[in-house]
Simulated assay, not measured.
Amino acid sequence: MSEANPEAWGAGAPQRESTTEVRADVAQRIEAEFRSAGVTGFLHVTDIDTGREVAIRAGEPVVLASVFKVPLLVTFHRQAAGGLLDPAEPVTLRPRDRTAGPTGVSGMQDEVRMSLRDLTFLMITVSDNAAADTVLDRVGRDAVNATAAALGLHDTIVEVSGRELHETLLADAGVSSFADVWARLDEPGMPSRLRALDPMRTSRSTPRDMTRLLSMIWRDEAAPPDGCAAMRRLFGLQVWPHRLSSGFPFDDVVVSGKTGTLPTLRNEVGAVEYPDGGRYAVAVFTRSPLPVAVLPRADAVIGTAARLAVESLRRP
């Protein structure tokens, strides 16, 4: 494939035959776990090498939140391989220009200078909003959506940057801080007013699209092999592994992922790799009716649901 044509990567990738493997008992157990945690769950888990799958509302649109940084990362590596950008290009981020956020460059007070590649490190490992928006500005939103289309992710659209997401939350809630959004979330009609919580008015995808993208990253099809290896490394370094990895508390099982969080929404997409070579792409998106920031059961059910699905795929 020509390195000058990033759209070529993944276009000719072999399509794995998908076979829905949700037996009634598995589906019922997963749904019961979602109900017990007080959430509505959207799940897709697939064997990366065979295409066997477990799907629960896997084709319904979901809010990406910070998971939008995954297709952004893929686009970055495709453009780097195609010579459209230099990963080592230095970027200066001034405090007054940076997107708000609690982590990474977003939370720093002084001018920062680093490479585009290091910004991708921060946007995945600590979900740095300022880093992600800087990369998005360099890569281009249209390019991210073109990459999604080229890879067959027809339900994946990046509508807003991290800055725009934050600004719409404040504007729709009529407040001046993120904490105030939470304070007003239980007011009648407030959740429906927030564009950031509506998958048709913000960046969106489906669980099935996300596992397709992850599978291509793990099979070296989303970008050249060195780019895919670099992406897998970053997902393995995420500093908040508690959601997905809580379902796989084993020293010899490797869990990599990317979280996404907004008021009432808790998501994680990632990969689970077993020592026998089995590897599974996982996407779990949840929505809670409770306007509370700390809801441990909603975090934990992501790992529980993923484990039940993976275990069902590992059985003959």
Rank of each mutant, 00 (worst) to 15 (best):
V63G: 01
H77I: 15
E53M: 15
T46M: 11
R57Y: 11
V70N: 02
Q79I: 08
A37V: 13
F76R: 04
V63R: 00
I56R: 03
V70W: 02
E33A: 15
V39E: 05
R35Q: 13
A80P: 10
R78H: 08
F76M: 04
F34C: 10
V54Y: 01
G59Q: 07
G41M: 07
I48R: 01
Q79W: 01
D49P: 06
F76K: 03
P71Q: 11
L43S: 06
S36Y: 07
F76W: 04
I56Q: 04
G38H: 08
H77Q: 13
R57G: 14
L72V: 09
V70A: 08
F68M: 11
A32P: 09
T40K: 13
A55T: 00
L73M: 14
H77G: 09
V74I: 05
T50E: 02
A58Q: 06
A55F: 00
L64P: 02
T40M: 06
V67G: 00
L84H: 12
I56A: 09
V67Y: 00
T46E: 15
L73H: 04
A37N: 14
G51E: 11
T75H: 03
A37K: 11
L73W: 05
A37S: 14
R52F: 12
D49Q: 08
S66W: 05
A37G: 11
T50F: 01
T46N: 03
G59K: 05
R52H: 11
A37T: 14
L43N: 03
F42E: 00
P61H: 08
E53W: 05
D47Q: 04
I48Y: 05
L73S: 06
A58N: 02
H77W: 15
V67F: 04
A81P: 01
L43D: 01
A37Q: 11
G51R: 02
T75F: 01
G82R: 10
P71F: 05
P71K: 09
G41A: 14
T40I: 12
G59Y: 03
Q79K: 14
R78M: 12
